[in-house]
Design a protein around this nucleic acid. Sequence first.
DNA 1: CGCCAGGGTCTCG
DNA 2: CGAGACCATGGC
Length: 284
Amino acid sequence: MNGTAPPSVSILDAPDFNLPLTLTSGQVFHWSEVAGYWEGLVGDKYCAVRQDGQHLVFRGSLSAAEVANYFALDHAMDEISASFPDDAFSQAALRACTGLRVIRQPEWECLATFITSAMKQVAHIRQMSLAIRSRFGMPVSQSAINAYPSPARLALTDEAALRECSLGFRAKNLLGAARSIDDGTIDLLALRSMKTADARTALCSLPGVGVKVANCVLLFAYERLDAVPVDVWINRIMRAMRGGRPATAAQLQRYSERHLGPYAGYVQQYLFHHARVSKTLPQR
DNA sequence: CGCCAGGGTCTCG
DNA sequence: CGAGACCATGGC
């Protein structure tokens, strides 16, 4: 209301939620912990948030409804937990990752970030994402980092400039995707009302987007909670679930879709994070 | 230092 | 359809 008023803090109920776990589970890459608060952007809106037991304490430009929507506080965690398969892998991951939410990310920055994720570790995906924001993004009031640059902005740059953000061979793909979206070849808004299979096909027509990246975007930005990204970690876990027998990528993708239940994407995210932090699985 | 990372694409059998 | 080569870069 009053432009000279001190920044106010708001409080939100957040049962069955673990903020740091959610923000460090490899679905979103730009949040930083500063002085007890997690600071980040949702689109071009700044948010600083910390967890206090069953509550979120936050300040910035987001309304309570927007914070709740971003962190998917409305997800029916009882129902989702109950849907996890009754095998040792899934149940161990469920116990270890209680409170992890699959959040609702802005579509373009999710897509762009996962285009740059190919054959990269989580730490480096974060570095590339921050470099792109710093170099091409618009400053945001209160925020140490910039908004993710729009497709139109990236369409204006060139491959060499993107390579200076350490993208390597991914630079051409990000540029090509930005241009296809900027010129209307692909309409990210239109994907919202499409069947998952059709949306996946559309995403896969973009350079640097195959089934794995498309499923990341469907899961993390389009709320398709049954979409299962099969990366090298999930690959190992699926193989172990099947008794360690060798299997093709297509077999493992099919297995994940048939055996992980209606919230397969959730199960996958728990399996991924648990395996990655515990390092209990065979390395090959 | 050698190996690996939240892969995609193209070619060849 | 399935396997291999190739693509850059940094963490460990």
